[in-house]
Design a protein around this nucleic acid. Structure first.
Length: 962
DNA sequence: CGATTCACG
DNA sequence: ACGTACGTGAATCGA
């Protein structure tokens, strides 16, 4: 009975401004466009639909309608030709999105409102006013557009949908009056009329901006009254208002939302209905909105948010929660604070320049500093299947850093920090031991950003993490290999969130640098929790992206499993014979001093030989060497590189001396002097860092020190390898090299039968190439021919040019051209392969390896010939170099696991692109040698079956092992 | 901090 | 007509 009286059910009407919401959603995704597998940009559709779903779920309206701008020009255009004139044409992506959006709205059984000749705001304004008159107590105009402020009344309010970290916002009369500093909402029109609106091309009055408009309207109440009292104004302002009075009035008129649109308000038609589930599912399938479908249609919570918690875990959590009302297990829907899962509130809207931070995002970060709380946390951790964690330490050097605390996160927006109770290593050890069940748990996926660091820290406390890993840094490396992968920029780009910079805690680099240990745990907690939280959310963003482009397997089967292998290699370190280095340093210094004297003598003066500038002046100005062959660098200095000096050396002895001086100085400063300084005090070994996310091709790189460029090509350089030794007299170094991997890969990819045959027969490939290129029988190939052929072979892999080849083997360009032509005649499939590689890259704008690793080549279609040429060479080289990297990475994983499973004492200690070095007990050498060979040769099988060969050597030092 | 040079694959 | 082989990292000089 009561339900039939109009006042009883609380009627709640939502009117959505479609275009305003669509535009906002579209531009929110413009930085990381979302594209489905058919190439449709779905950002606007997803954003809009998310907003719609959110309002349905959270606000539960009883009535709803979506307004679009009507067709044909509006009265505003007739009134003012420039209206919205400079606004750009609708982006094509939005045009394509609109039919889908309309279908989705229809599938929700929500009426679409549009009136010819009127814009959506007029329609919404008119309907809102009439709804109010018909007794609706709550009417919400859903829009991000501030023009609507003029319409706000006690019943009619603006609903600004949730916007990144900012929750949905309701603007009522009080808000509007405060924001525009006016007495009545209608005066918003006067403000807008005076200050104009650049985006709608409403001119306003020149010289009047936001501040002045507010002041003038406070004083005069309206544009009309201001004009009537223009005498009271002063100077330039008076002149402007006088001169542009008409423009001001017109602007006010343009800004006015018209409430007389010819449209009936029929409440019945706006009643919220059940959606057409089948139709929605069809649309979501086509658009590939998997998570949205799960959330809307399957009644599930967002998969990414709670999907990682097993049902049992959830029940457990709830029970415990109810029982003690504790910290753990906030209901998932309250935890969507900064989630960016498929257009979660977080990623919905983030116009450039608007960024969320810790301060304006809802989150629950907890500091757990009692044994009881830690025990409770551990209990919950063990119920999860995916947890992100982070270690806080006293520094970045893994060998010396000490643990300060651990943070964990398994629900977005909710994280826990456990500090080491006292600043001593025993306390840290005890804490790690307490959480050992978590690190040992095979069933938990451990997520981290640069997780190798955390693994290494934990190794120092005796923990070998088990179970699968997911590194967000590596995930992004696969998505965008040539970008940076730091957590802060990833959070900015993918979550529209700005993490607290570490410098805010420990200050800028330099002396007096604090560490995490110097700060109260409460302060570290937020930072640490944020890291774990952001990392978890990045994982949720990256995983579907990787899946879309087919890179998830590469991540899960190569990059992530390689992490513990690299951690082990780095942790193990390499034994360096510092004494031998010391002796050699002195020896080199002797040569260097001698060379210096001779050089000064030749030059007739003393100067800094290490300064290319001074050297150039001495050689080319004072000594007048070089003749016309003088080259300059791009900065206008004389070029004094190896190539130049070698040419000079024929008739100027000083050039040869300088080359030798340079070589020896390099050896001494970069290796002989530097390496012993990097020996770790704790174990007397050198620990390099292998970077897994720097190269564009998929190779590793090595820093601090770089152990991938230890000399070998010259006699004096090679000597340095004698100082790389096994751990003790009972061990040997074992070096295993792939022989000509890259050439084999190219032979296989091209399917060139001539070259494949040579490899199958186990021929020396350079001799074989020489025989073809110089058209002589194999046994007549001399060493000079072989040398040239070797250069050609390398050149091919790099994307050869006649000029480059001529330069390198010291022949004329004509001769080089002939050699290349003959090469392509003999190996015609190789030529085909090179052309195909370029064409494929032109099409895709990326090149890919055997395992699908991508290198984007966005300049491949450039009109700049130089740039294009460079990119074309990359199109040839990247798949080859990258596949070689894929292969050795797989081999490393397999060997590491085999050594571990066999409980062998042999340790992998280095990787140098096509070589692995092991420190092996002498008695294991015979057993491991064939197995290592086999595991390397079969790590990946090439499509055409070209075999991989591995050469193994052992010795008392790295030089002997070759 | 960029440019130059040179060590490696 | 133009510039010229792929991928790295470290030391050094000098603005």
């Amino acid at each position: 009975m009561t339900s039939e009286t109009p006042a009883a059910p609380a009627r709640k009407l939502f009117l959505l401004d479609a275009f305003a919401l669509i535009y906002r959603a579209h531009f929110a995704f413009s930085k990381n466009p979302r594209v489905n597998s058919k190439g449709l940009n779905t950002g606007a559709i997803l954003g809009f639909t998310n907003t719609l779903v959110e309002v349905l779920q959270k606000e539960k309206p009883t009535h709803i309608g979506v307004a679009f701008d009507g067709p044909k020009k509006t009265f505003r255009h007739e009134q003012y030709a420039a209206y919205k004139a400079q606004r750009q044409a609708m982006p094509e992506d939005i045009g394509l999105a609109i039919p889908y959006i309309k279908q989705i709205i229809q599938a929700f059984h929500i009426p679409i409102l549009l009136v010819e000749g009127y814009e959506a705001d007029d329609v919404i304004g008119t309907l809102a006013r009439r709804a109010e008159q018909q007794g609706f107590g709550e009417v919400y105009m859903m829009t991000p557009d501030k023009d609507y402020c003029q319409l706000v009344t006690d019943c009619v309010k603006i609903y600004r949908p949730a916007f990144m970290g900012n929750a949905a916002e309701i603007l009522d009369v009080a808000h509007v009056l405060q924001r525009f500093e006016v007495e009545r909402a209608e005066q918003v029109i006067d403000i807008l009329g005076l200050q104009g609106d650049a985006s709608d091309n409403i001119p306003g009055i020149p010289g009047i901006g936001e501040k002045t408009a507010k002041k003038l309207i406070q004083e005069y109440g309206s544009v009309e009254n201001l004009i009537a009292n223009v005498d009271q104004l002063k100077g330039k302002q008076q002149q402007n208002v006088r001169e542009f009075a008409e423009q001001g009035l017109m602007s006010k008129e343009l800004a006015t939302i018209h409430l007389d649109v010819p449209i009936e308000f029929e409440a019945d038609k706006l009643v919220l209905d059940q959606p057409d589930h089948e139709e929605l599912r069809r649309l979501f399938d086509e658009l590939e909105f998997r998570q949205l479908a799960a959330r809307v249609l399957d009644g599930g919570s967002p998969a990414g948010v709670t999907g990682n918690v097993s049902p049992r875990a959830k029940n457990e959590k709830r029970k415990t929660n109810a029982g003690q009302g504790s910290l753990f297990g906030t209901p998932a829907d309250a935890a969507v604070a900064i989630g960016a899962e498929e257009g979660e509130t977080g990623s919905l809207g983030a116009p450039a320049g608007l960024r969320r931070t810790l301060e304006d995002v809802a989150h629950q970060y907890h500091l757990l500093d009692t044994p009881a709380l830690r025990a409770e946390l551990l209990k919950f951790l063990l119920l999860q299947t995916e947890v992100s964690f982070d270690t806080e330490t006293t520094g970045l050097d893994t060998m010396t850093a000490r643990l300060v605390g651990l943070s964990f996160c398994w629900l977005p927006g909710e994280a826990y920090y456990v500090p080491v109770p006292q600043a001593d290593d025993a306390a840290a050890q005890a804490l790690v031991d307490e959480f050992r069940p978590f690190f040992d748990a095979e069933h938990i996926l451990k997520i981290g950003q640069n997780i190798k660091y955390d693994l290494t820290i934990l190794k120092h406390y005796g923990v070998e993490i088990r179970g699968p890993l997911f590194d967000t840094m590596l995930a992004h490396y696969l998505l965008e290999p040539d970008m940076r992968h730091g957590m802060d920029v990833l959070a900015e780009t993918y979550l529209h969130y700005t993490p607290v910079p570490i410098t805010a805690l420990i200050g800028p680099r330099g002396k007096n640098q604090k560490t995490m240990a110097d700060l109260p745990p409460a302060q570290v907690s937020d930072y640490a929790c944020e890291d774990a939280d952001v990392t978890l959310q990045l994982k949720y963003v990256f995983e579907p992206l990787l899946k879309e482009v087919g890179l998830l397997d590469l991540l899960n089967e190569v990059e992530n499993p390689l992490v513990p292998v690299l951690a082990a290699i780095e942790y193990e370190g390499v034994q360096i014979d510092s004494a031998a280095m010391g002796e050699y340093s002195a020896e080199l210094q002797g040569y260097i001093t001698e060379l210096e004297t001779q050089i000064y003598q030749e030059a007739g003066e003393e100067f800094n030989i290490g300064s290319p500038k001074q050297l150039g002046e001495v050689l080319f100005d004072k000594m007048d060497l070089g003749g016309k062959k003088i080259k300059k660098t791009k900065t206008g200095q004389y070029a004094t590189g190896e190539e130049i000096l070698s040419q000079l050396a024929a008739d100027a002895p000083i050039a040869g001396l300088i080359l030798e001086y340079r070589q020896l100085s390099k050896l001494r400063s970069t290796y002989v002097e530097a390496l012993p300084q990097l020996v770790c005090e704790l174990d007397g070994r050198v620990h390099t860092s292998f970077n897994q996310a720097v190269t564009a091709t998929g190779r590793l790189s090595s820093t601090n020190p770089n152990l991938q460029n230890i000399p070998i090509r010259t006699e004096k350089g090679r000597e340095i390898r004698k100082a790389f030794v096994p751990r003790d007299a009972n061990h040997l170094l074992l070096a295993a090299d792939y022989s000509q991997v890259e050439l084999r890969i190219m032979a296989d990819f091209s399917g060139d039968q001539t070259m494949i045959e040579a490899f199958r027969l186990g021929q020396d490939i350079h001799t074989s190439t020489a025989s073809k290129v110089f058209r002589v029988p194999l046994n007549e190939v001399d060493s000079e021919m072989r040398r040239k052929a070797k250069t050609v072979n390398f050149g091919i892999i790099y994307g050869i040019s006649a000029f480059g080849l001529a330069q390198r083997i010291g022949i004329s360009r004509k001769e080089a051209t002939d050699i290349i032509d003959t090469y392509f005649e003999e190996f015609s499939s190789v030529k085909q392969f090179m052309d195909d590689s370029i064409n494929k890259a032109r099409e895709l704008e990326y090149a890919e390896t055997l395992l699908g690793r991508r290198r984007y080549l966005r300049d491949i279609n450039s009109r700049n010939a130089t740039l294009r040429g460079y990119t074309e060479r990359n199109a040839i080289n990247a798949p080859i170099q990258g596949t070689a990297a894929d292969i050795i990475k797989k081999a490393m994983i397999n060997i590491h696991e085999w050594l571990r499973d066999e409980k062998l004492a042999t340790r992998m200690i280095l990787q140098v692109h096509d070589e692995l070095v092991f420190d092996a007990p002498q008695e294991e050498v015979a057993y491991i040698t064939p197995k290592i060979k086999e595991l390397m040769a079969t790590a990946l099988l090439l499509p055409h079956g070209v075999p991989l060969e591995v050469e193994v050597g052992t010795g008392k030092n790295w030089l002997q092992a070759h």
